[in-house]
Write a protein that binds this DNA or RNA. Structure first.
Lengths: 243, 243
DNA sequence: CGTCCCCTTGAATAAGCTCAATTAATGTGG
DNA sequence: CCACATTAATTGAGCTTATTCAAGGGGACG
């Protein structure tokens, strides 16, 4: 759970008690193989899931067979905190790699939400940051060039992995295929492959062996027009007037 | 404010007291001309804005000059509830038409959040539904054909306008230009124009005189693969075990 | 009446996709 | 540990889609 706590403390500190309460709320830990559905679409659930290990995605398959991935959940991320409030997901959560997943029952979350104003705000903040990430993906897919789009994704994931302490120097694990990446970027597999090659050729970053290695962080950010502001990393969440 | 209350009651009823509290929290009402910035990006604010009249958008302009619109806010929508928790926006809120905007100071929201568990959940739900809309836009831009993409947008907006009672039969006002639409859809203006023409030619919907008229709702939904589930219209928000 | 903004249409260009084939990496059973 | 099977990455080439460029039309407004 250490990664989860790091992740939740993303925007503000958690006290020891708060950490204990969260850890104590976990009801069970399950394993999923790559490709397995962790939370099916449109089925009501009464618990929310947290990725302890591996990477999962939010995705939708259209009638044409085309798939769009709308989010990646990495170690420490809630994949469906939303269901605590809205009960069903319109798109499913699927394991991209083998995953370990912890679940917290909604009634436990509810107790926390009622009793602990501070943690409630952190949870809300977490879903709002997710929403900010969605908007960036819209901007990427809609208007960034394929190269900038991939560069932006690599930048974002680097910082997200850094938060939970899973980067090694300038690289991090990304256990997905280029096919998966293409369904994130809204490109064909072939073009995704060429885009990866382009980033590599320009000495910006390499995606190989399920791992992203960043060679020139400054230049990568520049091509992506990456501004990390939207990830709200600086622990400056508004803690309410009275806190 | 009537539209705002309808909008907030989207997922669940509001009591009279709750309604009064919200209405009483509004500190001021401002007017903005089309094109004016309502909330600038990356500037901390201590209030959140609600659209009383008109339509505004969340948008980002890249260095290339390309613009991507990531959200439309219509009458009754909060445009930046997020700032209550996160204080700054990474992209700006701009008036697409002349707008009337009410603002609620964050300290008032905070009182509501602390004291009224039920309204707090409605506010959270509202931001989560927004997030669901973002994900649908990702799916649209990433994998739907231009025609399906536009059809999907028209379907979504129809239901959103219906909630606040602003549809007339099968039509609703959409005071934006085709240029604006193209920056929603991630297409060029020319292609957006041709896509509008295609929907019209197929007898599905017409966008003209800043107004969308739907001719064949079933067929429009079919081409869009539109499933309204993600808008959570059925007032079935989880009201917590004990409510 | 002229200007501005928006919509519309045609045509050339370019971007990205599909199809197809090859190579590389990973996994499996003997 | 090696042969074989399977999945993933890579490359080439033709084709489709969407973009850009360019020009014309329509309506609102001063």
């Amino acid at each position: 759970m250490e990664h989860v706590l790091k992740r939740l403390a993303w925007t503000d500190r958690l006290s020891g008690d708060e950490q204990d309460e969260l850890v104590g709320s976990v009801s069970r830990v399950q394993s999923f193989e790559a490709g397995a559905t962790i939370v099916p679409a449109e089925v009501p659930v009464d618990f929310s899931s947290i990725i302890l290990q591996g990477i999962s995605s939010r995705q939708k398959v259209l009638e044409s067979g085309a798939r769009q991935i709308t989010a990646f959940h990495i170690t420490g991320d809630f994949c469906d905190l939303h269901t605590y409030v809205l009960k069903t997901l319109p798109d499913s959560v699927v394991a991209m790699s083998d995953c370990k997943v912890a679940t917290i029952p909604h009634d436990k979350l509810d107790r926390i939400f009622r009793d602990n104003y501070h943690v409630a705000r952190l949870l809300w903040a977490s879903t709002l940051i997710d929403a900010g990430i969605f908007r960036q993906w819209i901007i990427s897919i809609g208007r960034r060039t394929p190269t900038a789009r991939l560069a932006h994704l690599f930048c974002e994931l680097f910082l997200r992995f850094q938060i939970v302490g899973l980067t090694q120097d300038m690289s991090y694990p990304l256990p997905v295929t280029q096919t998966d990446l293409s369904d994130v970027l809204g490109l064909s597999l072939v073009h995704t492959n060429r885009t990866c090659a382009a980033l590599r050729a320009e000495g910006l970053a390499t995606f190989s062996q399920r791992r992203v290695t960043i060679h020139d962080w400054e230049a990568l950010q520049r091509t992506a027009e990456f501004n990390p502001e939207y990830l709200h990393l600086q622990r400056k969440v508004a803690l309410a007037p009275s806190c």
